[in-house]
């Protein structure tokens, strides 16, 4: 019985245990999301336990010492893409790329054979994801909109004013997958009818009530080697088994 799966998920969440995966329907995902929103105001949300903080600090120190004992090859550096460096306060939803002072903290794990000398200006790139191609450059001419699905990250990329821009493809109402409208000038939610501009701004709300929905999160996008690339978690892109 389907309701039991989401019920068990919530019970484990409330029982301070790790919830177990299940093949959730859209309605069940909405219930999980609501449960998380409520739990976020609960007693466990106020901060980590001192024991966890101490344990993780010890683990990180140990990890750091291990790294120092066995130095890795000098990390590769690469020329940063032609982009303006942004002040930290303006940093942005492109997310993966953090503009930063050239000689501070910036270290890339990019092992590209095109790596630049270590004195080249760097940029800080989270190491938990990779740039993944979603289209050929020729497939995204000026004004075009292309949907992509990398498993963990789905969305739409378009070119406007000569620049690529990408937004998440999940409705900020209840997370349903958005569709490109037949007129190809907006994104429509099949679940409750919300619509968004291609820039991600909420145009219409479910039932035309309440305050506007949050804008669609932006997704890091770049163009390299004739391909349009999205920054997303690395690894298997297929959805997990139910």
């Amino acid at each position: 019985m389907r309701r039991q799966a989401v019920d068990r998920y919530v019970d484990r969440l409330l029982g301070r245990r790790r919830p177990k995966s299940f093949a959730a329907t859209e309605d069940e995902l909405a219930m999980v999301r609501t449960a998380i929103d409520l739990a976020a105001a609960g007693p466990d949300a106020h901060g980590p336990s001192p024991a966890f903080v101490d344990r993780l600090r010890d683990q990180l120190r140990e990890h750091e010492q291990t790294q120092e004992a066995t130095p890795e090859p000098r990390p590769a550096w690469r020329t940063p893409p032609r982009r303006r460096f942004l002040a930290a306060g303006a940093l942005t939803a492109t997310g993966a790329l953090v503009g930063a002072a050239a000689d501070q903290l910036l270290q890339s794990r990019d092992q590209s054979p095109q790596a630049q000398p270590p004195d080249a200006p760097g940029e800080l790139v989270p190491v938990t994801g990779t740039w993944q191609p979603v289209a050929q450059t020729s497939e995204v001419p000026e004004g075009a909109v292309v949907a992509f699905d990398l498993g963990a990250v789905t969305g739409f990329v378009r070119r406007t004013g000569g620049r690529l821009r990408a937004v998440s493809g999940n409705c900020t109402h209840q997370g349903c997958r958005l569709n490109l409208d037949t007129t190809r000038d907006k994104l429509a939610c099949p679940c409750h009818g919300a619509t968004f501009s291609l820039a991600g701004v909420n145009l219409t709300r479910p039932h035309q009530s309440g305050t506007p929905l949050p804008a669609l999160p932006r997704v890091p996008v770049r163009e390299q080697g004739g391909t349009v690339q999205i920054y997303a978690p690395a690894g298997d892109h297929s959805p997990p088994a139910a």
Binding site: P19, A24, L29, R33, A93, N170, G175, P217, P240
Partner: peptide, 13 residues
């Protein structure tokens, strides 16, 4: 992606 196979929640940078 590993658990419910859907971005139940997201962090907007």
């Amino acid at each position: 992606r590993r658990t419910l196979g859907h971005q139940v929640t997201e962090i907007d940078p």
